[in-house]
């Protein structure tokens, strides 16, 4: 499915550019995007090194396990395949907390760390494990309490009440997340039988 979507976007973009008579756009966009990829990765290396460094400290001091044990019961039943004190649980909790607080650039390193830990418990290294899929479903539909960026945009556009969309945002995410969790649960149970 990913291969198909990837190809479809590329081909559609090229055809539409050709039809619009701006085929040179394709060249510029492709080059620009490739450069952007490097920029994003390099920026990410900076914040990621910072957070993974801190994470290592937290791990060696036993905090990550502590967090996993403290908050684990709440999310453990979503990850039945993981060991109760799995280091992945700690990273997952940190990632979700960072997402909820809207700390996007801290969330990614924790998330990638969680994936690495989940991969260690994955019996089939090139196939996504159920725990990974559950984690990504949570991660991509996760609630952000304060959508700071969009509030900033609304403020600049002279909104009478820039923060009025917080409530609607939480309801929308809450529903999306609930459905994701329920459907994921149902899929896992059906496959087990």
């Amino acid at each position: 499915m990913v291969n198909l979507i990837w190809l479809l976007m590329l081909v559609t973009g090229i055809i539409v550019s050709a039809l619009n008579g701006h085929i040179e756009n394709v060249t510029v966009s492709a080059m620009k995007a490739a450069e952007l990829g490097v920029e994003v990765a390099i920026e990410l290396i900076g914040v990621m090194s910072l957070w993974l460094g801190l994470m290592r400290l937290a791990e060696e001091a036993g905090f990550v396990k502590g967090i996993a044990r403290l908050f684990g019961p709440a999310i453990r039943h979503l990850f039945p395949s993981l060991k109760p004190d799995s280091p992945a649980l700690g990273a997952i909790i940190m990632n979700l907390s960072a997402n909820i607080l809207g700390l996007g650039n801290a969330a990614t390193p924790f998330g990638l760390k969680a994936m690495q830990e989940l991969q260690k418990e994955n019996p089939t290294p090139d196939v996504a494990s159920p725990a990974m899929i559950t984690f990504l479903a949570l991660n991509t539909s996760c609630i952000t309490l304060i959508p700071a960026t969009i509030i900033g945009v609304r403020l600049k556009a002279n909104s009478a009440n820039p923060t009025e969309i917080i409530g609607t945002t939480i309801v929308a995410t809450g529903c999306a997340m609930s459905v994701a969790i329920i459907v994921d649960y149902l899929i896992r149970h059906r496959r087990k039988k």
Binding site: A34, G37, G53, P109
Partner: peptide, 28 residues
Amino acid sequence: GAEEGFKTGVRILPFLIGMLVSIGVFVD
């Protein structure tokens, strides 16, 4: 711990570029 950040960054680079190129061509 920080050393892992570099490795992870390098590892995701091809995926980032692959995705961004396809999305960029489509959007632009």
